[in-house]
């Protein structure tokens, strides 16, 4: 098999005396749909923060597409091809929905292209997401699903090789979850590698080709979705039995 797109080797992150991640190693291959699960506080978001650069890992190494990410700033990692969403949507609230998408296009995926083309590209992503009619709306009036979609759309606008979706479906209804899943699978089919962090098991198991489970900062299981749901360690982590 070719070199993995993302290779994490013995990554450790400590907050004072608390070890949030200890010796986590994993590989994600190009074009893969990868699920990341684990109970609350197990270190999922910390791992994502270490990959996207909003936190620097204390030990271990992260390689992405030939780059050694250690010491790279978040914006440099985005330029290298990693884009993420935030668990709690963080829209640019003084801008319209369309202008939100223009930022990653102008700064990452479309450096040097003209404003009208930037607007076209942003609009086409909004259309794919089914949000075209909201383009000129302020983000303040958006509903929960619209905010989640905007968060995804903005990350996708950076045209990443690797998209990390941090609980993009939290708080959504069943139909809305299906809608977001469909969008993500669509982008995956176009070649985008996706890591999904999710608490909605139905979604993450349906979506992922491979899943890992974190518990208390340690990787406790790795495998195909149906293997993971049967794993005793995973059961213990979630149910405590």
């Amino acid at each position: 098999m070719s070199d993995p797109l993302l290779k994490i080797e013995s990554v450790t992150k400590k907050f004072g005396g608390f070890t949030a991640l200890s010796n986590v190693s994993l590989k994600v291959h190009t074009g893969e749909r990868f699920g990341l699960i684990g109970p609350n506080g197990s270190g999922k978001t910390t791992l994502i923060n270490c990959i996207s650069g909003t936190l620097q890992n204390d030990g271990g190494e992260i390689f992405f597409d030939g780059h050694d990410l250690n010491g790279m700033k978040p914006h440099q990692r985005t330029a290298a091809g990693i884009a993420r969403t935030f668990q709690i949507p963080r829209p640019f609230h003084s801008m319209t929905v369309l202008d939100n998408l223009k930022i990653p296009i102008e700064y990452v995926s479309g450096i040097g292209i003209g404003q009208s083309e930037i607007a076209e590209q942003a609009m086409s992503i909004l259309e794919t997401m089914g949000m075209a009619e909201k383009a000129n709306q302020e983000t303040l009036g958006l509903t929960q699903i619209e905010l989640r979609k905007l968060e995804l759309a903005r990350a996708i606008a950076a045209k990443p090789k690797l998209l990390i979706s941090d609980e993009a479906m939290a708080g959504l209804t069943g139909n809305e979850v299906d809608e977001v899943l469909e969008i993500l699978i669509g982008f995956n089919e176009q070649g985008m590698t996706i890591i999904m962090i999710e608490h909605i098991m139905r979604a993450v198991m349906h979506f992922s080709q491979r899943v890992i489970c974190l518990d208390a900062g340690e990787l406790i299981a790795e495998g195909k979705p149906d293997e993971i749901v049967k794993d005793k360690g995973v059961e213990r982590a979630y149910l405590g039995v």
């Binding site: 700033k73 914006h75 935030f86 640019f92 930022i103 990653p104």
Partner: peptide, 13 residues
Amino acid sequence: KDNEEAAECMGVP
């Protein structure tokens, strides 16, 4: 101004 961390993650230096 709107959200510095999100800006950085969207590629803004």
